[in-house]
């Protein structure tokens, strides 16, 4: 039993660091598929985090939520995205408007900023500083990915990373939301992905590319 508790405690303390790792790797990724795999890794870390939190606080519901996250975010969404990429048959690059080096610089800045932002609320929230900062960092970096990557699929990736951040923030601050709300959020995400998938196909059919920075160019 001691071993399980040790593993859970280590997971809770070192998960934030692994999340920073996935986010920084996403900044350097040149292909969309790399980002999809990294997102799957990130979600797997989140799943482990939920399991660890559930084990430490003895909540049965947490395991159901963990299973749902595993099913949807680790398997369903990455598979759907990879399938979408195969179907769309467009260029695989992320369309970065900022080079990887600068992206990592900005993302590092955002991570530090999130530490600074979290510090003010730490006393009221009773949450671990590093993990709360990781949640804020995921939200900021997801938004940053959406802003600096011009391919429609990468915008979806950014949104998913952002959503992971919100999920983590909810997990740390409220010690697990009610099950029904979690189910609602996950289904929201699925429907969102479905709609975005349709939308991406429409963009491709109309413009022959997925570069959102060139959407304003008229076709004659």
């Amino acid at each position: 039993m001691g071993l399980f508790e040790l593993a859970a405690a280590k997971m809770l303390s070192s998960a934030a660091m692994l999340l920073f790792g996935t986010v920084l790797l996403m900044a350097t990724a040149k292909r969309i598929s790399t980002c999809v795999y990294l997102f799957a890794c990130q979600s797997a870390i989140l799943t482990a985090e939920v399991v660890a939190a559930g084990y430490v606080q003895h909540m049965r519901e947490a395991y159901i939520i963990a299973g749902m996250v595993l099913l949807v975010k680790v398997f369903a969404i990455p598979f759907a995205l990879l399938w979408l990429m195969k179907k769309l048959r467009t260029a695989h690059d992320v369309g970065a408007s900022l080079s990887p080096g600068y992206s990592v610089f900005v993302m590092s800045g955002l991570i530090i900023l999130s530490f600074a932002a979290v510090r003010l609320y730490l006393i009221e929230l009773h949450a671990t500083e590093v993990i709360l900062a990781a949640a804020v960092a995921l939200i900021l970096n997801g938004a940053f990915l959406m802003v600096t990557r011009s391919k429609a699929l990468m915008l979806m990736m950014g949104l998913l990373v952002l959503e992971n951040g919100i999920f983590l923030a909810a997990l740390v601050t409220t010690f697990g939301m009610p099950l029904i709300i979690e189910i609602g959020i996950v289904f929201d995400l699925l429907i969102g992905l479905f709609l975005m998938g349709i939308f991406v196909f429409r963009i491709r059919d109309t413009f022959d590319h997925l570069d959102v920075s060139r959407l304003r160019g008229l076709r004659g």
Partner: peptide
């Protein structure tokens, strides 16, 4: 190559700052 090494610089700076944060 400079961009590749820029990633290293960013990570290293982050590492130094993290010694103060954590």
């Amino acid at each position: 190559v400079p961009d590749f090494l820029r990633v290293a610089s960013a990570l290293a700076i982050l590492a130094v700052i993290f010694t103060a944060i954590t």
